[in-house]
Amino acid sequence: MEMIKDNNQKRELLNEKNKKLYEDILVYVRLSYNKSEQETEEILMELLDHLLSLQKEDRDASELFGDNPRSYADEIIGELPKTVTRKSLCLFGMGVCYFFATFTFFQGFLTTLLSYIFDHIQTSRTYALGTVFVNSFSSVVIAALVVYGMIRYLRWSCFNTWSKAFEVIFTGVLFGIIPFGLFIALFYFMPAFGVVINLDVYWLMPIGIILFLIGQWLRKRA
C-alpha cells in the first residue's frame, strides 16, 4: 500500500525519542486487526505529519499524545471504523488454506524425494480420515490461538521496556514450546478412527497445490 511506504520514509525524519514513541503507537494501532486498513493508515499518517510539525517547532510529543500514549492510542482505535466481516473471513480462510497447502505439499515433496534416496521410506501412507479431520481442525484452532495470543502480546508489550533476554524466553515458551508440544501430543495420542484410505504420498503435492489455489482465490476476494 502506497501510504505505508510513505509512512516508512517519512518516519525517518523523526528524532530518536519521537520515533520510538510514534512507532509504539503505530504498531499498537495497526495490531487492532479488525479495523479498516484505509482509515487506520490515514489517521497514522495525519498523526505523523502533526508530530513532524511539532518537532520542527521544538515542541514535545506529549502535546499531541498527552501523558499516556497507550490510552490515547486506545481512544483512536475506539473511533476507527470496523472492517467488513466478509473480508476478515476471506483472509482467515486464506491463512488456513496456505497453512495446509504448505504442510501437505512439503510433506508429499520431501517424502517422495527422500524415498528415492533411502530405500526403506515407504511411498504409500495410510490415513484414517476421521483422525485427519479432527487433527486438522484442532491445528487450525491452536494456530489461530497462537496468532491471536501473539497479537495480544505484541500490543501489550508496545509501551513496555522489558529486558530482551526475558522477553525471548517468555515468548519462546508461550508461543513456541507450548503450541509445539500440543501439536506433537495431538498427532501422537489421537486414536485412529473413521474411513481408512491408502494414498501414495506424491498425491499430497497436487492436493497442496489445490489448497494453495483456493487460498489465492480467497485472497483475491478479500
Partner: peptide, 9 residues
Amino acid sequence: EGSIYPILL
C-alpha cells in the same frame, strides 16, 4: 492537540 483526532474520526 491530539484530542482533535478521535473527534475527527
